[in-house]
Amino acid sequence: MIQFFNVTKKFDNGTLGLENISVSINSGEFVFLVGPSGAGKSTFTRLLIRELLPTSGQIMLDGKSIIRMKSKEVPHLRRKIGFIFQDFRLLQERTVYENVAFALEAVGTPNSEVKKRVPTVLEMVGIGDKYACFPEELSGGEQQRVAIARAIVNNPSILLADEPTGNLDPSTSLEIMKIINDINKRGTTIIMATHDSESVNKLRKRVIVLNKGGILRDELKGGYDYVIK
């Protein structure tokens, strides 16, 4: 369970990231973060992996404070959270297999285990036959699948997605959304920042609308439409 208690994040240059946000997200939930650019969606996700520390307030993950955590424990926090990005962030000079294996090796998974898990997860996201390709040989949708495979290969309990369909055409976006939805069905909490109104409206999941660092609306089975006053 993720809990934000009165979280405020002010950046050094004076920009307000989030202002006095309190929200709680249960395990296994699927949450869309929507809102205009600069509303605080990225700040929210970056706080959760402790890439940023809040100016005030408390953030708990499974009853443990992320804020009070020692920096030595941060890597272990991040192993519980998979992260995918709008720009995929694959290593261009490594093959698909190596890109995914990298996430396992980086946390010290034995080689025999890596050989078992990488093909399974590639199969799961539908690119089992592309393991020897380099990212530049793949379409955008395929690259995002590799990124998803990399994010979930460690079996994280949470998957954070920062506009994962932002660079993809509508039909590819739907395929990616289906994969993410499938991952959610297997019990992984999904927090997804997005501008993809079609996906939000179609899936009817919990929608948190952020604006100017505050929560404008928080609806179960919500839609994308929101009005900024």
Binding site: R78, R79, A106, V107
Partner: peptide
């Protein structure tokens, strides 16, 4: 540096990197 930042995101310890 991309490699390093991805390693950080997937939870590699600093010494490992």
């Amino acid at each position: 540096k991309n490699e390093i930042s991805i390693m950080k995101y997937v939870g590699a310890t600093n010494w490992f990197i």
